[in-house]
Each structure stands twice: as structure tokens, then as C-alpha cells.
């Protein structure tokens, strides 16, 4: 603050502060407070707004538990509310995305941090960044095109004789969420890579050598020395990828199968199609809350503290 004042003078500094305050207050805090307030009120015709029916309740939040449908998991059949199923699927497949990005990122991060010739590093990082120059929407559409029925993947595989007939990749080979998982991994893998790279880089190479000198096998070195040191980076990468995946609307909308539904899409339907902003707001806040609970539970299970991530 003192620095700012000295450098720019009172007028400019005051302007900066006011603009930032306006940004935070008018464009972030107030809209969220409005939504939060709206989430407890019913969706009413214009005539009834402010009337006797316009009272506070948890009704919008309760809709999350309405409409049980038959479902099955691991061969066991039971009933769950339809939106709860959507939520569980979203969490499950976001976790899968997080796991896949971790498996892809860890070896690469280790290679970049400890093995590669430092002079080649800028080139490699640049190559990793190139896809980020293209917007997220275009990257998702690129995958849409690759996976379509009349798309290049089918053309290539059938052309080479590996497939007899084209496959509907977008509708899933393993699960209904294959295409979404591919799209999310591609979009968010770097958010896993760089935190892990950062934490492995800070490990003293002497420790790795010491471990090897004392007779540890390569996997023992990773398990006992490198992974524990990289834990904060892995944790922050996981939190970021998980929250970004769970919160993504674009990729699940561009790469859906005929059975997939992402929770963000449910919120979007409430907001735009049903025009019920009140329930949409309730679902949004419920979603933030539930995702925070999931992340907190996982961090507790892996014995990671918030202060570790902040390192």
C-alpha cells in the first residue's frame, strides 16, 4: 500500500483501490449474496413476488432428494433421487479424471524436474503449453470432431483395418462418460503437472542419490522419498483438477453421451430452461458445499492439511 502510494500518488492509488473494491463488491460479492438469498425463496410469477407466498424455506434445497429412480451399482439395484445420481456420477468421474491426470503427470513431472537436461527444459515446457494457446471451447470441439461417428479416428482405424465398423466413441465404450473424461483430462492435465513439478523440483537430488546408495530399488525411492516430499504438490494438483472438472460445464456439454449428465448441466437447466433461478441458486450452493465436503474428506483420508497446499 505504502509502495503504491509512493509510486502512483493518492489519486491513482485511490482509483485502483476503488476499482478493485467495485469489482469485488459489485461483480463478485453482491451477485453471490443475491443468489444466496434467492436460493431460499420460491420461484413465483412476477405477480406474487413480495406477496404472501414469497417466504423463506429450504424447499429448493430439498428438491435434490426428490424423484427417486431405479439404479444399480456393482450389480446391486436400489433407488436414488435422480439429481443425487447425477451428483454422484459427477463426483465419481471427476475423481477418475483426477486420478488419470495424476498417473500421467507424475512421471512427466519427475522427468522434467530431475532427469532432463536443464537447457532443454524451456523448450519442453513451451511444448506443453502450446495446447493452452487454443481456447478451451476449441479444444473440446476438437475432441468432439475426433470422436464423432464420421470423424478422423473412425476413418483411420477402419482405414487401417483395425476396426470392421465405425464405433460411436462419444456414447462410450467403457462407461457413458468416456468422452467427457477424455476431454477433461486433456483440458486440465497441466493443472496437475505443474504443482507436482514444483514440489519435486524442491527436493534435494542428494536425497534421491542417498536412497539409491543405501540400496533402495527405484520404486522404493519413489514411494519412500519422492512421493512424500511431493505430497503438497500432488494435493494441490488434485484439488484443482477435481474442482475444475466437477465445475466444468463446457466439456460435458460438448462431449456428452446419450446417458451422461453432469451436475453443472442440471444447474444450467434449472437456471435457463426452467427459468427457476431460485432452485438453480440453491443447487449451486449445495454443489459448492458438497464438493467442499468431498475434498475435505479426501484430504483427511490422505492426511493432507490446508497449510501443506499453501506451501
Amino acid at each position: 500500500m505504502q509502495d503504491l502510494l509512493r509510486r502512483y500518488g493518492a489519486t491513482l492509488t485511490g482509483t485502483f483501490v476503488l476499482l478493485v473494491a467495485f469489482w469485488l463488491l459489485a461483480l463478485v460479492i453482491l451477485p453471490n449474496v443475491t443468489l444466496f438469498e434467492a436460493s431460499f425463496r420460491p420461484y413465483l410469477p412476477v405477480v406474487d413476488v413480495g406477496g404472501p407466498k414469497d417466504t423463506y424455506s429450504f424447499d429448493n434445497y430439498r428438491k435434490f432428494l426428490n424423484n427417486p429412480v431405479d439404479t444399480s451399482f456393482l450389480g446391486i439395484s436400489f433407488q436414488l433421487p435422480i439429481h443425487t445420481i447425477t451428483f454422484l456420477n459427477t463426483v465419481l468421474f471427476s475423481a477418475l479424471v483426477t486420478f488419470i491426470t495424476f498417473v500421467m503427470s507424475y512421471p512427466l513431472a519427475y522427468y522434467l524436474a530431475k532427469i532432463v537436461n536443464p537447457r532443454a527444459l524451456p523448450t519442453l515446457v513451451l511444448l506443453l503449453f502450446v495446447p493452452l494457446w487454443v481456447s478451451e471451447a476449441l479444444r473440446a470441439f476438437a475432441w468432439y470432431i475426433i470422436l464423432t461417428f464420421n470423424g478422423p479416428l473412425n476413418a483411420a482405424l477402419v482405414g487401417m483395418g483395425l476396426l470392421d465398423a465405425p464405433v460411436r466413441w462419444q456414447n462410450g465404450v467403457f462407461t457413458a462418460y468416456d468422452a467427457i473424461v477424455i476431454g477433461l483430462v486433456y483440458t486440465y492435465v497441466l493443472f496437475m503437472l505443474f504443482p507436482i513439478y514444483g514440489s519435486i523440483q524442491s527436493l534435494d537430488t542428494n536425497q534421491i542419490e542417498a536412497s539409491e546408495d543405501l540400496g533402495a530399488k527405484w520404486w522404493q525411492t519413489h514411494w519412500r522419498v519422492i512421493l512424500p516430499h511431493a505430497k503438497p504438490g500432488i494435493a494441490s494438483g488434485c484439488v484443482m483438477v477435481f474442482m475444475l472438472s466437477a465445475g466444468s460445464l463446457l466439456v460435458p456439454s460438448v462431449l456428452p453421451s446419450t446417458k451422461s449428465n453432469w451436475f453443472t448441466q442440471t444447474i444450467q437447466v434449472w437456471m435457463l430452461e426452467s427459468q427457476d433461478w431460485n432452485t438453480g441458486a440453491a443447487y449451486s450452493f449445495l454443489y459448492i458445499l458438497l464438493c467442499t465436503v468431498v475434498v475435505t474428506l479426501v484430504m483427511w483420508a490422505f492426511k493432507v492439511k490446508l497449510s501443506d497446499i499453501a506451501k
Binding site: Y43, H83, T86, N261, T266, W270, D276
Partner: peptide, 18 residues
């Protein structure tokens, strides 16, 4: 009606999930 559209959305969700 608003009630109808909300219900319609639930049916659409069930249809998608089936």
C-alpha cells in the same frame, strides 16, 4: 406453467439417465 416446466425438466433428466 413454471411448475410444469420444472416437472418436464425432471422427466428429461430421467430420460437422459436411462
Amino acid at each position: 406453467t413454471a411448475e410444469f416446466i420444472a416437472k418436464r425438466g425432471e422427466y428429461a433428466d430421467k430420460y437422459k439417465a436411462a
